[in-house]
Simulated assay, not measured.
Amino acid sequence: MTSALTHLGNMPIQQFLLEYWQKKPLLIRNAFPNFQSPIDGDELAGLALEEEVESRIVVEKGKTPWELHNGPFDEDTFANLPPTHWTLLVQAVDQWVPEVNLLLDNFRFIPNWRLDDIMISFAPDQGSVGPHFDYYDVFLLQGMGKRKWKIGQNCDVNSPHLQGTQLHILENFETQDEWILEPGDMLYIPPGVAHWGVAQGDCMTYSIGFRAPSHSAIVDELSHDIAQTLNNDARFSDPYLKLQSNPGEINADAIAQIQEIIQQHFTAENIAHWFGKHMTERKYGQDDIESDDEITADDWQAALAEGQMLWRHPAARVAFHTSNEGTQLFADGQAFPCSRELAELVSAEVEISWEQLKPLVQDLFDRAVITQLINQETLLVDE
Score class of each variant (00 low, 15 high):
217 A>T: 13
300 W>Y: 13
72 P>I: 06
142 Q>M: 09
7 H>A: 07
86 W>Q: 00
257 Q>G: 04
153 Q>R: 01
288 D>C: 04
121 S>F: 08
270 N>C: 06
27 L>M: 08
102 L>Q: 13
60 E>F: 11
335 A>G: 14
298 D>Y: 00
81 L>R: 02
213 P>Q: 11
229 T>E: 12
136 Y>R: 04
160 P>G: 05
117 D>Y: 10
362 Q>W: 00
114 R>G: 07
160 P>V: 10
342 L>E: 00
109 F>Y: 14
10 N>V: 11
126 Q>L: 11
213 P>D: 08
94 D>F: 08
59 V>N: 03
293 D>S: 03
275 F>L: 15
239 P>Y: 02
364 L>W: 03
151 I>S: 02
66 W>H: 03
335 A>V: 04
203 C>E: 00
292 D>C: 04
35 F>S: 02
264 Q>I: 01
91 Q>V: 06
247 P>M: 02
241 L>K: 10
102 L>I: 03
79 A>Q: 13
277 K>W: 04
328 Q>L: 15
216 S>Q: 13
2 T>K: 12
109 F>T: 14
169 I>G: 00
145 G>P: 09
36 Q>R: 13
216 S>A: 14
382 D>H: 05
340 R>V: 14
43 E>K: 12
39 I>C: 03
364 L>D: 13
274 W>R: 10
153 Q>F: 08
19 E>G: 09
135 Y>I: 12
299 D>H: 08
227 A>T: 11
235 R>T: 13
363 D>S: 10
368 A>V: 03
169 I>W: 11
259 Q>M: 09
337 P>E: 01
376 Q>S: 07
111 P>N: 10
304 L>W: 08
12 P>R: 08
160 P>L: 09
169 I>A: 04
69 H>F: 15
30 N>Q: 14
7 H>N: 08
6 T>V: 13
48 A>G: 05
351 E>R: 09
188 Y>A: 01
238 D>P: 01
113 W>F: 15
322 T>D: 06
260 E>N: 13
249 E>A: 08
62 G>I: 12
134 D>C: 08
174 E>M: 10
320 F>R: 02
212 A>F: 07
88 L>F: 04
139 F>T: 04
356 Q>M: 09
148 K>A: 05
117 D>M: 11
120 I>T: 01
374 I>V: 15
61 K>D: 09
316 A>T: 07
77 T>E: 07
272 A>D: 14
372 Q>M: 09
114 R>E: 02
2 T>P: 02
156 D>F: 12
224 H>T: 14
318 V>Y: 01
93 V>F: 02
291 S>P: 00
9 G>Y: 11
376 Q>M: 10
187 L>T: 10
241 L>Q: 14
233 D>T: 15
216 S>W: 11
161 H>F: 13
172 N>V: 13
335 A>W: 07
36 Q>K: 12
